[in-house]
Structures are given as C-alpha cells and as structure tokens.
Design a protein around this nucleic acid. Sequence first.
DNA 1: ATACTTGCAAAGCCTTTGCAGATCT
DNA 2: AGATCTGCAAAGGCTTTGCAAGTAT
Lengths: 181, 181
Amino acid sequence: MKQTRAALPVAEPASAKAADKALARGAEKLEWARQVCREGHLRRTPAREEILQFLAHQDRPATLATLSGERRIAATCDPATVFRVLQKLEEAGLVRRIWLHERAPYYILLFPHDHRDYVLCTGCGKVEETRLECPVQKLEKEVGERLGYIEIHHELGFYGVCPDCQEKPGTRRGGKKSSCC
Amino acid sequence: MKQTRAALPVAEPASAKAADKALARGAEKLEWARQVCREGHLRRTPAREEILQFLAHQDRPATLATLSGERRIAATCDPATVFRVLQKLEEAGLVRRIWLHERAPYYILLFPHDHRDYVLCTGCGKVEETRLECPVQKLEKEVGERLGYIEIHHELGFYGVCPDCQEKPGTRRGGKKSSCC
DNA sequence: ATACTTGCAAAGCCTTTGCAGATCT
DNA sequence: AGATCTGCAAAGGCTTTGCAAGTAT
C-alpha cells in the first residue's frame, strides 16, 4: 500500500469560486494556527511554518510520511523534525494524532468547530472526507455522562472499496491491496 | 501506557444472571466461529481454539500483545502463531483489524449484527464499549451512494479522560500518560 | 545569552517473514 | 501422503530518541 504513504493529492475544487473559498479557508486556519503558536510560546521556524501551511490547506489526515515527503517540507527539514514539530503541535492542542487503518498515525489540524469524518478505501488506502453531517457529536455528551468521561471527542471512519478499486481485481477483503489510486 | 498492552480485565457482570447471559452469548459466538472455520476449511488446532475462545468471550478489541499475553493462549502457542492465526481469521472474514489509538492494531470478532462502538481513555488507554445505540449504521448507505464505495462498514471511537484518570495528575492532553487503570 | 530547535545517526518496538519440523485430515 | 500449521529466530518498517550544533527571542 505504497499509495497511502505518498503525498495525497488535494482534491480539485469544482470551480474557480470553490478554489478561492478553499484558499481563503486555508488562510484562515493558518492564521489561527500561528496565533495559537504565539500564545503557546512556540517559536516561528521554517519547519513549523511549512508544516502548518500544509496542514491548513489540506482537508484530510496526513501521515508522517506524507508530510515528510511533501516537496516544500522535505526541502525545509528532516523527517525527525517533522515528527517533533507535530509532537509539539499536539501538545499545544493544535494537532491531533488519529489512527485509521495503518500502523502509522495520521495527523489532523484541530481548527475549532471543524470536525470531519473520513472514508477510507480498504483497497488502496485512499482517504476522503464524507462531507456529511456528523450525527455523533451529540452522542458525546451522553457517553460522557454514562461512563464518567470528560474532554470527549470522537473519530468516525467509514471503510469500503472505492470505485476505482472495484474495477480492479485482487482488492477484496483479506486480499493483497491494489494500487489504483 | 503499559496497561494497554497487558491483558484487559473482562468487566465483572453486575449479577449472576448477567454473567450467565454473557457466558451463553460467548458460547454462541464460539459456535458460530467454529462453524465458519469449518466452512472455510480451516483446521481445528489448539492455537485457533484458544484464540477463538478468548475473542468470543471478550467484548472489546484486543491487541496482539493482549492475546499473546493471555495465560491460556501463551501456554498454547507462540506470538507469531497468534499473529498468523488472526491473519487467517481475518481472511476468512471472522475477525477484523481496527486501529484505535496506538500503533498496534486491535482485533475484534465479527459476529454478525454485533457492531460495537468504543470509548478509550486518553490517559491510561483503557477500552470500554459504549453500550449506546449506534446512529451511524444508516449513514453507511448514504456514504456509499454519494462516493461510490461498496462493502462499507464503519468504526466509531470516543476518546476522553476516564473517571480514574481524572483523579490523577499528569493525565491531560499532550501530557505523559498515567497508569491508573 | 539562553532556551528552544534541528540534523544526523542510532536505537527501539512490534509486526512480519523464512524455514524446517510437527500436525491435522 | 499432502497440505497446513507452528516455533524459533531473524528481518523489516517506522517511530522515537540522544547529542552536539544551530537559531529565534
């Protein structure tokens, strides 16, 4: 499943308008992230800047390999640094590590009120976001009350075979993964 | 977070009656699992038998380490065998590998119509089941239709700080994990 | 000036695999 | 007999860390 590790292509926005919007949103996130860094007394370094830029403009979880492999980040710093930057960002509450379907952790930016759920292809490992209303948010409170947990959040992942993989053989459950996407 | 790796204690049923019920359900699952194995022409070996017994009576995901460490399984076979047995069971559709909050995969038995959602403590790593109605099942179809995926399933995990960890220091986000439970 | 960051290289942690011998059907 | 399993030991893949040098404040 090499594909999972390679840089995930950012989905092409449907229109120029949508592209503008996505860019604006990315800029907004980036600004927020810088602000939080400042408040957390994290120094502004090239590595952090590049990583935050990437995360802010990427609407899906990224692995360490994805990040380290991304051209601009790779040109700026070492993979170990990427790891440590993410670690710091996590401590600062900017980033969260989640586990989807691989041994490798995925990282997401925790922009406020920006919860997303994902769909993963069990064939090729592609990750997309559902773009559906998430029905679980309100359940969190209930879980907390019944079991006594606090500071609750959730992660919801859908797993299935994507259209591309459906056309290729050898992609089914338990079989070896294909590399279509 | 050593606790995650050690054998997870099976929750004490509230009453003798509940205990009986849980046992009966475990037996039912075990019978089903054996049946599927037979149909899949998987040989009946001590290792498989022990592992299936454990999974059938355990209502929460178990890691390789948990399984390999369990007394009866450890006495029966080698960790590499546990790994391979689980691999085979996964291919046969009896077991699924899921990723919760650690690099290590968790394994669950896929007893039909037995979907569960979990709550994980970000402090100590404890895993419980929510015992709440899962509202996501019906969303699966929608996700499939919109994005063209087939053979969809989902995994939903809640993350928070459990009651035990709330009493201990150093358990908060980004901090080092405690070992209370 | 000094505390935080980074690169490089090495260490770790678990999973995963090869192979020869044991087992199940 | 013949295909499957298993143990042991070694290989792998990625994350994680130590240390000395570099850099932001």
